[in-house]
Design a protein around this nucleic acid. Structure first.
Length: 198
DNA sequence: CGGCTGATGATCT
DNA sequence: GATCATCAGCCGG
């Protein structure tokens, strides 16, 4: 399978636009001897002046990557257990990002199954915590430029993206009414309640 | 499938 | 000390 790395020039600067753009693109995790990759089927945008965004209260040690130029990785720990993979949005200095919520496994499926302790491919990376576990997303990847060669980067493949649906975001307690979740309609790899993925 | 609950620890106040 | 961009397990329909 041929995966071509995305360049920063082809990424939308606007965070919501980038969130939509990333559906259908590919996350590639290059390990010393193996490649794990998955096609993004679900994202959520977190904007500046959005109380649900980790950057809302300003820059801190944890969220500094959100203020990097769009296309950098922001990885953090949620609920003390799960790691979340995000892509920074907006120009340098703008705190915004996109949570990658689910991918359709493409390469390294056996490795994902081993890491997750599951067989069902639709359960390997359906949800941000599952995705991070399956793809070995670690805190050490925080701050990486995802448009450069390295252990984690973004690419595209020659395959059409289906119709993209929009809904409110999942699992948050603030700004719960904003239509900032994007997903590929009909994909069995999308997470969340079914009513939000129509 | 939807709804609920406990686990669990980094982060910030 | 409170909060939390989640998940697995369990239950009822």
């Amino acid at each position: 399978m041929r995966v071509v790395r995305l360049t920063r020039a082809e990424l939308p600067v606007d965070t919501a636009e980038l969130a939509r753009f990333l559906v259908g693109k590919v996350v590639v995790r290059d390990l010393p001897d193996d490649r794990i990759s998955g096609r993004i089927v679900e994202t959520e945008a977190y904007l500046p002046r959005d109380a649900a965004c980790h950057a809302y209260r300003g820059e801190t040690p944890r969220n500094r990557s959100l203020f990097l130029e769009f296309g950098h990785a922001y990885v953090y720990v949620s609920y003390g257990i799960h790691r979340m993979l995000n892509v920074a949005g907006g120009a340098r200095g703008i705190g915004a990002g996109i949570l990658i919520r689910a991918v359709e496994p493409l390469q390294g499926i056996e490795l994902m199954q081993a890491r997750r302790g599951l067989e069902r491919v639709t359960d390997l990376a359906r949800g941000p915590g599952k995705l991070a576990q399956a793809m070995e997303i670690t805190l050490g990847l925080d701050g990486l430029d995802l448009t450069r060669e390295g252990p984690l980067w973004l690419g595209r493949i020659d395959r059409p993206t289906g119709s993209i649906g929009v809904s409110v975001r999942i699992g948050i307690t603030k700004e719960t009414d904003l239509p900032l979740r994007f997903f590929e309609r009909g994909s069995p790899y999308v997470s969340g309640p079914k009513r939000l993925s129509v």
